[in-house]
């Protein structure tokens, strides 16, 4: 029976002709847009996750503590809620780090009369303090310590990146939804043509007492096939775009976002997009209700 229904659906698809092709292309567009935004958003999400792990807060000290006082200072910093770890960086260590950063221009540092850099404690916030509010509270607590001159750093920029990621997801969903609506309407139009073209089959089916499901299922299936075809094309387009674009922009992405590689959509994402295509098509097919005859 399924073979018959599928055969009828394929026959209907051929009948719908160009309108079916338009519907397939619209499904392709909507899913490609959705998938494209999803891809970018997923990679931004990865970058946000990585950067959250790397966030450091620098606690600059008023004066370099005596070696004997150091363990006690670190202990007090460590005791501040929201601190995962604390590492002391002496003025000499800071200068060495600066030289390393300057590289071949490190000689500039040697011409300084004295070491201008303050000693500091490098704090890694706990996971619970990796949000803007919690990070602000942590900074305030650290500033309250008597030895502290100034506290720098935070998670604000990571949060801004995260906001961008959320914005992209929202835009992606919006664009995808508008295109999906257009795709549903086009599948509905294509199916309405099919309903008209197969009115004689439908009349005979009703006349011989075919169950309503048998009459409606080919319409639903042909809509679903349009959606599936659109989804497969969208995935192929996304895959092709990824393989062309990703190698070209990966160096830039690595430099700016710290991601060594751009990840493609996961198998679960791909499955979700395919199912979304089938669902769009099925919905369009279902909405095109032919006039029910007696």
């Amino acid at each position: 029976m399924f073979g018959f229904l599928m055969g009828e659906a394929l026959r209907d698809l051929r009948r719908a002709g160009r309108v079916a092709v338009s519907a397939i292309l619209l499904v392709t567009l909507s899913l490609a847009a959705l998938g494209g935004f999803w891809l970018v958003s997923a990679n931004l999400d990865r970058a946000v996750g990585r950067w959250r792990d790397r966030v450091r807060i620098i606690v600059y000290l008023k004066r370099e503590p005596a070696e004997a006082d150091l363990p006690q200072l670190l202990e007090r910093v460590h005791a501040v809620p929201g601190v995962a770890s604390a590492v002391y960086v002496s003025r000499a260590d800071a200068l060495r780090a600066l030289k390393q950063v300057l590289g071949k221009d490190a000689a500039v540092v040697d011409s300084l009369p004295t070491n201008p850099l303050p000693s500091s404690v490098e704090v890694t916030p706990a996971a619970t303090a990796a949000t803007p509010n919690a990070a602000h509270q942590l900074v305030e607590r650290l500033e309250a310590l008597s030895e502290v001159e100034e506290v720098a750093g935070g998670v604000d920029w990571v949060e801004r990146l995260s906001q961008w990621q959320r914005l992209l997801t929202t835009i992606g969903l919006g664009v995808g939804a508008v295109l999906a609506l257009a795709a549903i309407l086009t599948v509905t139009t294509a199916t309405t043509l099919v309903v008209h073209a197969r009115r004689r089959e439908t009349e005979i089916m009703r006349l011989v007492g075919a169950p309503e499901l048998t009459i409606r299922l080919p319409l639903l299936l042909q809509g679903m096939l349009q959606g599936l075809a659109g989804a497969v094309l969208a995935l192929a387009a996304l895959s092709a775009m990824y393989s062309v674009v990703a190698p070209r922009i990966e160096p830039l992405v690595s430099l700016t976002l710290g991601l060594p590689r751009l990840a493609f959509l996961t198998p679960l994402n791909l499955l979700a997009l395919t199912l979304a295509g089938a669902l769009l098509g099925a919905l369009g097919g279902w909405l095109a209700r032919g006039g029910r005859e007696a």
Binding site: R206, L207, V208, G209, A210, P211, E212
Partner: peptide
């Protein structure tokens, strides 16, 4: 009902 109409028509050739 609709399903019974279908059943009736399965017993009638037209």
């Amino acid at each position: 009902r609709r399903a019974q109409v279908a059943a009736l028509r399965r017993s009638i050739g037209v």
